[in-house]
Nucleic acid binder design. Structure first.
Length: 711
DNA sequence: TATTAGATGATTTTT
DNA sequence: TCATCTAATA
């Protein structure tokens, strides 16, 4: 007897490549497709819990689309980082190749989908359509600090920093101004509402801020520069123009979006613009892992996806392949206490595993020692450093750990925190390249000029004005002779930049004199040996040489900066074993055999800035949930009793005895084994475990000394 | 006008 | 701690 099934659901021998997926994953990967007969594309929402094989499923779907006959170039894959985009593209490629080989066909020629972050794809589309949008195609992209500097120039020029009345409140600093601006743009909200909701202490400056932002916007346009937010904002504006939206939307048959829970209003609007009825859209995400509220992301976009696009098919992935049951229990207990119920309950078929540990230590010094000991002990049992991860809420929470790791010769790589590109000398050199790339890039020019000894803000300002008056021809600077400046260095700067400007410049050959010029500046500037800094410049040059031209290099570097310290020269490190340190945000999508979470105390986790609102607190809970669910076999959460609070200036010691994290309720704690490090036990002498004399405790605690005899 | 020293205040996570 | 701003000096 045969059972009639609709053509599009009939299993097909060509689906062999989906064999490794579980039923839910397979359903998601193959939904609406009947290879090789084409596809039918109702909107698809995949709710994928932590460790449920999301990347696997999405890359299979991409591969399946291609095998079903979709042209890869008509697929748009939007991810959260470029690393994720590359990973998925690579996997999809492998799956396709294997499937084609199976069928005895030749490997397909390399056609790549459009894959990248919203920002990167936005930049690419905007450049392409620039002529039709009244945009300079060769626009430069301002990174955060360039944008802040431009904001600062506008801020000073508007006289907002003058303080006629010394008692008057100061105008917000450049970073705050930029943050307010960014929040307003990304939330698509009115300035008043953003100020009321997120920056109440700046409310009184509403009118000045409004004027400032208008000026900032005008300056960016004059200078052919776009900031990060513009990449989304402009793209979204394009999508509001029906003809253009239809044209761009028609270029893609399928739009796959990863981490949909972290999309903001602009991004959601872009998707709606591309595919108004949602046909061809696949969104993947997990509402329990929404952690980018501060970037105006709203969980509602994923929750309301089925309402926004009617006819949405929803697939839920609940089987976790990553963590042991014991770790999953802890994570489930934590998220189970959220004020909002999450739709999924993760389960695993892996064994129970060892219970996660909750370790109490004295302070961050003890924490650092404890973690290094634990990491090295794991390595002894055969868990390589690379299979271990140390996670924390803020970049600086790992500072002491870094010192300890260096002292004990443990190699590591840190994600988040101070980045390669933020080092002053790296910024200087990039500024030079940015100026050459876009002679109208006021900030880059101004910064670069001040590198010349004897040139300060005033002189640089005048030179920039002269440059603008002279139609941005570098040559006009030759007539501008700054009185106090080192004339040789000034002349050399002009020659260096002039040689780099224009299409005729010999790339990457021009990098050599540019680096040479900057190195002379470096040596004059710093008395200490500059070899380390010079090596960084050489690294930068080596990276730059891999790109076709300056704009390509700068765009890549701005949109996808090296994530880790040491990332830029990772070729040398590649086969070595090293420990990963990462902020929880940067750890999204990653996993390790053994995970150590630092500094879990009230005030840091949850962060004290987030505890004022319910939404903020819930986001912190999800952040901790993300941290816990990174672990496969072993998990340790470390809580210092006493920690450093830079925000609270106190006389003398700024350490504070903090409360335990409010997330560790009895029900959550029950999933953990309690461990107390010896540093956190009552001291048995006048010297506490940190090695410093402690004045605030009795020099001898007879009771615990007596007890410890029996330990 | 450039540079330095000292005072003052603040916030974290990232494209 | 760090960035920013002001005042003093060259």
């Amino acid at each position: 007897m045969t059972i009639e099934t609709p053509v599009k659901n009939r299993p097909h021998r060509d689906e062999a490549h989906l064999a490794g997926l579980n039923p839910a994953q397979r359903e998601a990967a193959a939904f609406g497709l009947a290879a090789p007969h084409g596809w039918d594309a109702d909107p698809l929402l995949i709710l994928a819990g932590a460790g449920s094989g999301k990347t696997q499923t999405l890359s299979h779907r991409a591969a399946h689309l291609v095998l079903a006959g979709v042209d890869p170039r008509r697929i748009l894959l939007l991810t959260f980082s470029r690393r994720a985009a590359e990973e998925m593209t690579r996997r999809a490629h492998t799956i396709c190749d294997a499937a084609l080989a199976e069928r005895g066909r030749r490997r397909q020629s390399v056609k790549l989908p459009w894959a990248g972050t919203f920002h990167a794809i936005g930049a690419r589309l905007l450049r392409e359509y620039a002529p039709r949008l009244g945009l300079e195609p060769a626009f430069s992209i301002l990174d955060r600090s360039d944008a802040a500097d431009l904001m600062d120039v506008a801020r000073h020029d508007a006289g907002l920093t003058r303080r006629d009345d010394p008692n008057a409140k100061r105008f917000p600093r450049k970073d705050t101004c930029l943050a307010i601006y960014s929040a307003t743009v990304n939330r698509q909200a009115r300035l008043v509402d953003v100020l009321d909701g997120y920056f109440p202490w700046c409310r009184e400056h509403h009118d000045d801020l409004k004027r400032l932002f208008a000026d900032y916007t005008a300056r960016k346009q004059d200078r052919a520069t776009l900031d990060y937010d513009d990449l989304l904002l402009y793209w979204q504006l394009v999508m509001r123009e029906p003809a253009l939206a239809a044209e761009i939307g028609a270029r893609f048959d399928h739009v796959l979006i990863d981490e949909y829970q972290d999309t903001n209003g602009l991004q959601a609007a872009i998707i709606s613009g591309l595919k108004p009825d949602g046909r061809g859209v696949t969104a993947v995400g997990d509402d329990a892992q929404a952690i980018y509220g501060f970037r105006a992301a709203e969980v509602d976009h994923i929750l309301n996806f089925p309402k926004t696009f009617c006819g949405t098919h929803v697939v839920t992935l609940e089987q976790n392949y990553r963590s042991s049951q014991a770790i999953l229990n802890a994570a489930n207990a934590l998220i189970g206490e959220a004020s909002r119920a999450y739709a999924k309950q993760l389960f695993t078929e892996r064994g129970p595993g060892t219970r996660p540990r909750h370790v109490t230590v004295m302070d961050s010094a003890a924490e650092a020692r404890y973690v290094v000991d634990a990491v090295l002990a794991r390595r002894e049992t055969g868990v390589d450093l690379k299979r271990q991860g140390v996670l924390f809420r803020n970049g600086h929470h790992a500072n002491e750990l870094e010192i300890e790791l260096i002292a004990r010769n443990v190699p590591f790589k840190k994600y988040g925190g101070l980045k390669f590109l933020e080092a002053a000398h790296v910024k200087d050199f990039l500024g030079l390249l940015r100026w050459a790339d876009n002679p109208r890039h006021e900030i880059a020019a101004w910064r670069t000029m001040q590198l010349v000894p004897g040139v300060g803000p005033g002189t640089a300002r005048q030179a920039v004005d002269a440059l603008t008056a002279g139609n941005d021809e570098i040559a006009v600077l030759a007539d501008f002779r700054p009185a106090r400046a080192d004339q040789t260095a000034w002349r050399a700067m002009i020659d260096t930049v002039a040689a780099m400007v224009g299409d005729t410049a010999d790339w990457p050959g021009v990098l050599v004199p540019a680096a040479a010029w900057y190195k002379t500046i470096l040596r004059e500037r710093y008395e200490a040996p500059t070899t380390a800094r010079e090596a960084d410049i050489d690294d930068l040059v080596r990276i730059a040489e891999r790109y076709a031209d300056v704009p390509a290099f700068l765009t890549e570097l701005t949109l996808d900066p090296p994530q880790a310290t040491g990332d830029h020269n990772d070729d040398a490190l590649l086969d070595e074993d090293y420990l990963i340190l990462s902020t929880v945000h940067s750890a999204k999508g990653q996993e390790w055999d053994s995970v150590h979470v630092l500094h879990v105390a009230d005030g840091t986790f949850p962060s004290e800035f987030s505890t004022k609102t319910e939404a903020g607190l819930e986001e912190e809970r999800r952040l901790l949930y993300v941290a816990l669910t990174r672990a496969k076999n072993e998990l340790q959460v470390i809580s210092p009793l006493r920690y450093y609070v830079p925000e609270q200036p106190k006389y003398g010691d700024r350490h504070v005895y903090g409360a335990a994290s409010r997330f560790f309720t009895p029900r959550v704690l029950a999933c953990f084994e309690q461990v107390t490090d010896k540093s956190a036990l009552p001291a048995t002498s006048g010297i506490d475990a940190a090695g410093k004399p402690s004045a605030d405790r009795p020099s001898l605690d007879l009771a615990s000394a007596a007890r410890s005899l029996w330990d």
